[in-house]
Computed example of a mutant assay.
Amino acid sequence: MLASLTPAVQAAILDMDGVLWKDKQPLINLKEAFERFDALGIRVVLATNNSSRTVKEYQEKIASMGAQVDEEQIVTSSMAAAHVLQQRFPQGGPVYIMGADSLHQALEQAGFYHAEDNVLAVISGLDRTFSFEKLARATRLIRQGAFFMGTNPDTTFPTPNGLGPGAGSILAAIQTASEQTAVIAGKPSPTLYQMAMQRLGVSPQQTVSIGDRMETDILGGIRAGCRTALVLSGVTSRQILQTYDYQPDLVAEDLIHLLSA
């Protein structure tokens, strides 16, 4: 299917959750999928809105499922958040971080450190220790003028047991309490796509965005000027697909079918 697009696709920006796996359960044969990308001459960068793992942890997870990717082939919304903050506050400084260790690490590498008061920004990701106290502090800091950013707006993420609450559910609580809208670092904002295409050395016209979620993977790809392909192995069904006023270029049951002739 992917080979049917013209002009020919040279690069793919590939989502992970709902495309490669659901939690710890692989959805396809990863080794076979990457071999098919190679056979088609398509280079791949994995771009995820999930901020709860580091690049090394993603590499290890992919390796545990039988495939190998280089560090440069992975970009995350934590990295996008660090990039956006660096552009806004090049000097670095204190920020209030709600998220996993991977988000803390990405921000620390960019010159930012966690603080409870007098912060430049509040950054919200997938925080499995989210509490009313954290919500109250984030709300107060934003109302005091701190820049407000979310790693991603995904309200859910797919698991073998159904959909679980995503970073967007936490973000929604903070936005409601603070009465402020967050700047989004990950999809559907263009930052992750720009980072991926820069690494691949390609233009949007040469690139396809592949994912399972219409409002992030597909909308983000469209906004970035890329062609798009939806796989139905994650959160979007054919019935849900019909409710959107924008549509992907291709639709497939899963990634293997998308890479088939």
Rank of each mutant, 00 (worst) to 15 (best):
I142E: 02
Q180S: 08
T129I: 11
V44F: 10
P204L: 13
T156P: 02
L258P: 06
Q86H: 09
Q25C: 01
F112W: 04
I222S: 05
V122F: 03
G125C: 00
T151S: 06
I28Q: 08
V44T: 15
I62L: 13
A47F: 01
V202A: 07
T216A: 00
V19L: 08
L2T: 13
I42G: 12
S209Q: 10
G66S: 14
D127V: 07
A67N: 06
A138K: 02
R137A: 13
G111K: 07
A63H: 14
G18M: 07
I240Y: 01
Q109R: 13
A177Y: 03
A80N: 10
L20E: 07
A261N: 15
G18V: 08
L85G: 10
G186V: 00
V208I: 15
A110T: 12
A67E: 07
F37Y: 15
V119S: 09
E108R: 06
L14E: 07
L120T: 03
L241M: 07
T129L: 13
T243A: 11
A136E: 12
D254C: 11
F147C: 11
V183T: 07
G150A: 14
I218Q: 04
L27C: 05
K22V: 14
A146M: 07
A224Y: 07
I123S: 06
T207N: 12
G99C: 09
